[in-house]
């Protein structure tokens, strides 16, 4: 069991050391804020508030500035994201092909909504995106980096169920 502890421990340690390394890499230059945030988000999969405070202090810029930048760009997230990201395209082509039904299904199944897009078990995060450039295949979804075209409600339901099942197996 000692090993497991050290494992968990090292993720956090590694992340924190990584933040410092990122700061180093960008010379602690406040003008590189966006790039720094991007790199940090890659590490944590979101931008935790304490880490942002830490960045602001280290870069010598006001915290409100950092917060402003993070909330301005849609791809920065202050909330932890799930292990798997479900992107459902809601561009014009997908929209007319009833992408709304897909959105509804995922929200229903996972008990999430627009305000709270991540499932309780931290497995899934739903993102509604606009046109991913595959209009010929509408409606389209990207689930855990796999693209599904001409996706029906039933198929999407099966994909999700399969993932949940696999995840349960992994845990036991």
């Amino acid at each position: 069991m000692g090993c497991a502890c050290i494992d968990a421990r090292s993720t956090q340690t590694r992340q924190f050391l990584k933040v410092n390394e990122i700061l180093q890499r960008f010379d602690r230059n406040p003008r590189r804020l966006i790039a720094i945030l991007q790199a940090v988000q890659d590490e944590y999969r979101y931008l935790p508030e304490p880490v942002l405070n830490y960045l602001a202090t280290s870069l010598g810029i006001p915290r409100a500035r950092v917060y402003g930048v993070v909330t301005f760009y849609a791809h920065f997230s202050l909330q932890p994201k799930g292990k798997y990201i479900i992107r459902i395209c809601d561009g014009t082509a997908c929209h007319v092909n009833n992408s709304q039904a897909l959105l509804d299904l995922v929200r229903d199944k996972l008990g999430i909504d627009e305000e709270k897009p991540t499932s309780e078990d931290m497995l899934f995060t739903l993102e509604r995106v606009s046109c991913i450039g595959a209009c010929g295949l509408a409606p389209v979804a990207v689930v855990a980096d796999r693209v599904y075209g001409q996706l029906g409600v039933q198929k999407l339901g099966e994909v999700l169920e399969e993932m949940v099942r696999a995840e349960k197996e992994r845990r036991t």
Binding site: N53, Y67, G68
Partner: peptide, 18 residues
């Protein structure tokens, strides 16, 4: 620099951090 703009579009606000 206590206050700054946050969010965008119709949700823009002037607020302290977080």
């Amino acid at each position: 620099g206590v206050l700054d703009f946050a969010n965008r579009g119709s949700k823009v606000q002037v607020t302290p951090a977080f």
